Amino acid sequence: MPPTPRVPGRRRTSSLEPSSSFFPPANRPTSDWEITLCGDLSDRQSDLINRLVELPRRSRGLIYFDSNGGNVYTGLCLASLIRLRGLHAIGVVTGECSSAALFPFAACRERFVTPHATLLFHPIRWQSDEDVRYEEAVEWARHFKTLEIDLDQLLSRLFDMDFDKLQQWTRPGRFITGPEMIEAGLAKMVDLFEDDIWKQL
Rank of each mutant, 00 (worst) to 15 (best):
T36Y: 15
P5M: 14
A141T: 12
M161W: 06
T30C: 01
I82P: 06
P172D: 08
T94V: 12
T146P: 06
A141V: 02
T170A: 10
D195A: 15
R111Q: 04
S46W: 06
R6E: 07
V92R: 01
I35V: 07
G173A: 03
Q45V: 10
F121P: 00
I124D: 06
M1I: 02
F175L: 13
R109K: 02
P2R: 12
S98G: 15
L55T: 00
A107G: 09
W198K: 08
R44G: 12
D195P: 03
D32A: 12
F112D: 07
I90T: 14
N71R: 01
I90V: 14
E183M: 02
S128R: 07
V138D: 14
P104S: 05
A89V: 07
G39Y: 13
I182P: 00
E194P: 03
R133W: 11
R28D: 10
W198F: 14
S42P: 00
F144V: 04
R6N: 15
N71L: 00
S80V: 09
G9C: 10
F22K: 09
T36D: 11
I149Q: 11
A137P: 00
R142Y: 06
L87V: 04
T114E: 06
A79Q: 00
D43V: 13
R57S: 05
G69D: 04
R6S: 15
L41F: 01
N71D: 13
F105W: 09
R10A: 13
A106F: 06
F144K: 05
I149P: 02
E96T: 12
P104E: 05
H116I: 07
D191H: 04
F23C: 06
V53M: 13
S80F: 15
I182T: 06
M181K: 02
P5T: 08
P5W: 09
D32L: 04
I176H: 00
V7N: 15
V53D: 14
P123F: 04
E130K: 11
L76Q: 10
R85T: 03
G61A: 03
D40N: 14
I149A: 07
R174I: 01
A79E: 12
N50I: 05
C108Y: 01
L155E: 05
P172F: 15
E96C: 12
R58T: 03
I90Y: 08
G70H: 04
D164H: 14
L155M: 03
D43P: 00
L62Q: 09
L158T: 08
Q167K: 15
I82C: 06
E183W: 03
A26T: 05
A107M: 02
L119M: 06
L158M: 01
W169M: 13
D47L: 10
I182G: 00
R157V: 07
Y73H: 13
Y64R: 15
L201V: 13
S21Y: 08
I49L: 10
D164P: 03
L76Y: 10
M1A: 09
L166R: 10
L154H: 11
D162G: 09
E183P: 07
F105D: 11
P104C: 00
P8K: 12
N50R: 07
K165L: 10
R133H: 09
V92M: 08
I82G: 06
L192D: 02
E139F: 05
L102R: 01
D66R: 02
L84N: 10
L192N: 01
S80T: 15
R83V: 13
R174D: 12
A137H: 01
